[in-house]
């Protein structure tokens, strides 16, 4: 009896440091979202009062919600496609281990190490109207001044910055495919394309799941790159949800800002969990 009690106390002791920190600094702020989003907490009042759905009504009426959602979803979809496509192409090109491949892997992984804020500033300079790219190519493309296309440009910079991670995960997935499978496909006379489509892509399912889910969640929560490149502009055409949250917070409308934060939280949950489950189920079937 005493030994089992002591064992249990020992177990609790090992769990405690991690669980306390997760509870205090992660779970509590997430739960506070559900309370403070319904208040008028701001820099202009000494007290915090419950205001029901007022913040959400304002989000709807001001159009902030529809703009934020539209921009964020476009951004996330472009990032998810571009980043995974780039990662997959690079993985197929650099799949086999060799010195040359190791060099190129390292090159394409380099942007992962750069702070996203720094990457944003670099491309802001590169793509400016009178910037080096336009001058060197002799073109006049307003990369960062279009209310339609700039969101796509910024999303592509996001894909540039993180494609190295997707590449590595796909390479790991490709290397985990048993050599005999590819060998027997070759003896059966299967073309390269056929091998990719019928053997490699289906067996990459776990890597695809991982990459799609992480890329999508990362893109929903984007801030640094957009903040550096466009600060939400031109107009509000690159106003992703976190940009809105930051701007309202900076103006002192804390409760209002948190109500958008709560919607972002719900959006991530609504997309991430079903996607994870669907992709996992397909993995098992395959």
């Amino acid at each position: 009896m005493t030994t089992s009690l002591r064992a249990r106390a020992g177990t609790a002791g090992f769990l405690l440091p991690a669980l306390v920190v997760v509870a205090v600094f992660y779970l509590v702020p997430n739960l506070l979202n559900f309370a403070l989003a319904f208040t008028d907490w701001s820099a202009y009042k000494d007290t915090i009062a419950f205001t029901g759905l007022a913040n959400f009504r304002e989000l709807l009426q001001e159009g902030a919600l529809s703009t934020g959602l539209r921009v964020t979803v476009i951004y996330a979809v472009v990032v998810m496609i571009a980043q995974n496509l780039a990662g997959l192409l690079l993985a197929f090109a650099l799949e086999k281990p060799s010195r040359v491949h190791a060099f190129f892997r390292a090159m394409f992984f380099l942007p992962v190490l750069i702070s996203p804020l720094a990457a944003g500033y670099v491309f802001k300079a590169l793509l400016a109207d009178d910037g080096p790219l336009n001058r060197a190519a002799g073109i006049e493309v307003s990369w960062l001044g279009s209310t339609t296309w700039t969101i796509v440009v910024v999303a592509l910079v996001n894909a540039w910055k993180f494609m190295g991670v997707n590449m590595l995960v796909y390479i790991a997935g490709l290397n985990a495919i048993p050599g005999e499978l590819l060998e027997s496909a070759r003896t059966d006379g299967a073309s390269r394309w056929r091998t990719i489509r019928s053997i490699q892509l289906p067996l990459l399912a776990p890597a695809i799941t991982f990459n799609f889910v992480t890329t999508l969640i990362g893109a929903f929560n984007t801030f640094d790159i957009v903040f550096a490149m466009t600060n939400g502009g031109p107009g509000d055409s690159t106003q992703v949800l976190n940009m809105f949250i930051q701007q309202q917070y900076a103006q002192g409308y804390y409760g209002y800002s948190i109500s958008m934060g709560l919607l972002l939280l719900l959006l991530v949950c609504a997309v991430a969990f079903p996607l994870l489950l669907t992709l996992r189920r397909r993995e098992v079937d395959a």
Binding site: Y26, P29, N30, L32, S257, I258, G261, L265, V268
Partner: peptide
Amino acid sequence: VGILVPAPVITSVYL
């Protein structure tokens, strides 16, 4: 859970 759901930033400031 934190792998999927990020930390909310404004309520962290409050906390």
